[in-house]
Amino acid sequence: MKYSIVITTFDKRFDEFLVPLIRSIKQERNEAEIIVTANGSARAPFNEKYRAALLSFLASQHNCFPIIFPNFQSLAKMWNRGILTASQDRVLVLNDDLHIPAVNDGGFFAKFEDVLQRQPGTFKINGSFSHYVIDKSELIDVGFFDERLLGLGEEDGDFFWRFHEKFGREIPSVELPNIDNINSDISDDGYTKGIRTAAKFNRDYIKNVKYKEVLIGGYRGMFDKRVKKQVPDEMQYPYETFYREHKDLV
């Protein structure tokens, strides 16, 4: 396969969402490499029963690899670490609250792989970052998802804005059937919410620190209004390019 899969998750979505999602993927593509990034709790110890159940389940599935964070981490970091761990240069990143229905012929992955051959680079699926493809070389060129966004939310809009800043074009979107975004409101109880499950910290950082609304110039992207960036981006994972250029020499 010319792509890997990354799924972000946490304890409250294990039985209802993660297990059926992985099983549905393996039903269509048993050889698929799946990296599961499991988050810790924001204000509680890591759920030991969940850790045992998660590791047991993933061990029973072919080609599945866990990344477990003992403490709560940002979605940006979970995405970055999962993508860095994936063995392929193009990565299908999925939320855990997705449903991929079983069909007799031409299911999601058959159509997805056809699109993947025709659509280069990074792209969203059905207009959403709940399911998207990232190209590692483009991720490095734009800069990784901003890990200063310490909770969940705004990391996709920030990357979309910076992608346009780097390449002068927007991230395209492709329409694909047989994948449903459930948009679950089940979330960790320990962090302060803004809109739905998004962290208030992330919203405040984007609106009040990193970007400034402008009437003239700027770029809107996925944000509410046109903005200009006020805070420069630090280089994250600076040795990843060196690794990619020299890994075959080891």
Score class of each variant (00 low, 15 high):
210 K>A: 06
100 I>T: 01
26 K>F: 01
228 K>V: 07
218 G>A: 08
13 R>V: 09
164 H>T: 04
87 S>A: 12
171 I>M: 06
28 E>R: 05
205 Y>E: 12
90 R>S: 02
216 I>G: 07
53 A>S: 08
114 D>Y: 02
136 K>Q: 04
29 R>K: 14
131 H>C: 11
141 D>Y: 01
62 H>E: 09
12 K>Q: 10
99 H>E: 10
126 N>I: 04
174 V>T: 04
85 T>D: 14
27 Q>P: 14
216 I>L: 13
34 I>M: 02
64 C>G: 07
63 N>D: 06
90 R>G: 02
164 H>L: 14
59 A>H: 09
46 F>D: 10
190 G>P: 00
233 D>T: 15
24 S>N: 13
188 D>N: 11
71 N>F: 12
178 N>C: 08
198 A>S: 09
198 A>N: 11
158 D>F: 04
247 K>M: 03
78 M>T: 02
9 T>C: 11
47 N>Q: 01
246 H>D: 10
72 F>C: 12
69 F>T: 12
234 E>M: 05
78 M>N: 05
188 D>T: 00
135 D>Y: 05
189 D>V: 00
250 V>S: 13
245 E>H: 07
16 E>R: 13
100 I>F: 03
76 A>F: 04
176 L>G: 03
156 D>G: 14
79 W>G: 05
70 P>Y: 04
175 E>H: 15
138 E>P: 09
104 N>C: 15
242 F>D: 07
225 K>R: 07
133 V>N: 04
65 F>D: 07
193 K>D: 09
190 G>L: 01
21 L>P: 04
229 K>N: 02
170 E>K: 08
79 W>N: 07
168 G>I: 03
158 D>Y: 07
227 V>Y: 06
15 D>F: 04
250 V>L: 09
127 G>F: 02
172 P>H: 11
77 K>F: 09
114 D>G: 14
77 K>I: 06
226 R>H: 06
69 F>G: 07
108 F>A: 08
45 P>N: 11
110 A>E: 11
60 S>V: 00
25 I>E: 15
131 H>T: 08
82 G>M: 04
207 K>P: 00
82 G>K: 05
14 F>M: 04
127 G>P: 13
108 F>E: 05
225 K>F: 15
201 F>C: 10
23 R>P: 02
19 V>N: 02
226 R>I: 01
167 F>G: 13
73 Q>R: 08
210 K>Y: 02
47 N>A: 01
222 M>S: 15
171 I>C: 12
250 V>H: 07
206 I>R: 15
222 M>A: 10
